[in-house]
C-alpha cells in the first residue's frame, strides 16, 4: 500500500521531476560551479576557489550598498503590497453593480506593458511637469525631484510597486471566492459584526493565499530589477542600485559572470533562510482545511 502510494506520488510529480532533471537542474548547478570560477563569458571558466566570495565580502562596497537597497525595498514593499492587496480584494469581492469593471481597472497596471507604465511614471513623477508635483504645487507644497533625489527614489519605486498589486489581488480574490458561504451564514447566525466576520472568517480562510503571496513577494522583491533598470539605472548616487541590478551589471556589462554567480548564490542563501523561517511560522497562522 505504501509502495503504491509512493509510486502514485512520484507519477503525479513526474513532470516537475523530469523538468528538474532535464532543464532546471543543469543550469542551476552550473551557476553554482561558476560561482567558484572566473568566467568572462568569452573564455572557458577557470577555477579560483573562494576568490569571488572573498572579493564580494571584502572588496566590493557596492555589494553592501545594493544589499541595503534591496532590504529597504523588501521591508516596505512586501507588507504594503499584502495589506493593500488583501484590502482591495475584499472590496472587489463585494456584490455591487459594475464590480467586474472595477476588477479590470485595478488589474490594468498588470496588463499594460512595463515599457508603457514606466514612461507614464517618469512623466507623472517629473519634478516640473508631472502630475504629482502639480497637485502638490496646488496645495502649496514644493514637491521633491522624486526619482532624481536619493532620499525619494526608493519610496517612489515602492509606491509604484504597490500600484502594480493587481496580480496578487487576483490571487486573493480567487482565495476569497473559495470561502464556503456556509461559514458566513454560521457567523451571521451567531450575530457577528462585519469586522468580526472579516477577523474570524475571511482572514483566517485566506491565510494560505496570504502565505503564498508573502513567500512570492519576498522572493520577488529580493530580485527586484525591471523598473530600476528601465527608469533609474541605479542612480541617483547608487540609491536604486538594487542587488539584482548590481548583479546584472557585473554579469553582462562588466563581463564577470563568475562573480555574478557568486552574488546570486549569496542572495540564494539569504532568501532560502528567510523563506525557511516563513515556512516554519506557517503552523502558527496559516489555516489549511483539515
Amino acid at each position: 500500500m505504501a509502495r503504491r502510494q509512493n509510486l502514485t506520488g512520484w507519477l503525479f510529480a513526474s513532470p516537475v521531476v523530469i523538468g528538474l532533471l532535464v532543464f532546471t537542474g543543469y543550469p542551476f548547478l552550473a551557476s553554482l560551479y561558476l560561482s567558484f570560477c572566473e568566467y568572462d563569458i568569452f573564455n572557458p571558466p577557470t577555477w579560483v576557489g573562494l576568490n569571488n566570495y572573498r572579493i564580494l565580502f571584502t572588496r566590493d562596497p557596492l555589494f553592501w550598498t545594493s544589499l541595503k537597497n534591496v532590504l529597504y525595498y523588501t521591508v516596505f514593499a512586501v507588507p504594503m503590497g499584502i495589506t493593500f492587496g488583501v484590502a482591495l480584494a475584499m472590496l472587489l469581492d463585494a456584490k455591487i453593480k459594475g464590480i467586474s469593471v472595477y476588477r479590470t481597472i485595478f488589474f490594468l497596471p498588470s496588463i499594460v506593458p512595463v515599457v508603457a507604465t514606466s514612461v507614464l511614471w517618469l512623466w507623472l513623477l517629473n519634478p516640473r511637469i508631472g502630475l504629482v508635483n502639480t497637485l502638490l504645487r496646488l496645495t502649496g507644497v514644493a514637491g521633491p525631484t522624486w526619482l532624481g533625489d536619493p532620499a525619494w527614489s526608493k519610496p517612489s519605486l515602492i509606491f509604484m510597486g504597490v500600484w502594480g498589486v493587481g496580480g496578487s489581488m487576483i490571487i486573493y480574490l480567487a482565495g476569497l471566492k473559495d470561502i464556503p458561504v456556509t461559514l458566513y451564514e454560521a457567523a451571521l447566525v451567531d450575530g457577528a459584526s462585519t469586522w468580526q466576520r472579516i477577523r474570524h472568517v475571511t482572514l483566517p480562510m485566506i491565510t494560505p493565499v496570504i502565505f503564498f503571496n508573502l513567500v512570492m513577494g519576498l522572493i520577488g522583491s529580493f530580485q527586484y530589477f525591471t523598473q530600476a533598470f528601465i527608469m533609474t539605472g541605479g542612480g541617483p548616487l547608487d540609491s536604486t542600485l538594487f542587488y539584482a541590478l548590481h548583479l546584472f551589471y557585473q554579469a553582462f556589462m562588466y563581463l564577470k559572470m563568475g562573480y555574478a554567480s557568486a552574488m546570486a548564490w549569496v542572495l540564494f542563501v539569504i532568501v532560502v533562510a528567510v523563506t525557511a523561517v516563513v515556512f516554519k511560522t506557517q503552523g502558527r497562522w496559516v489555516h489549511y482545511g483539515r
Binding site: F23, T24, Q223, W265
Partner: peptide, 21 residues
Amino acid sequence: LIFSIVIATMILPGQVTMIPT
C-alpha cells in the same frame, strides 16, 4: 524534498542561469 527544491528554483536570480540554459 522535491517541494523544497521546486521552491528553491525560484529563488536563484535568473540572470546567472541564462547562459547555461
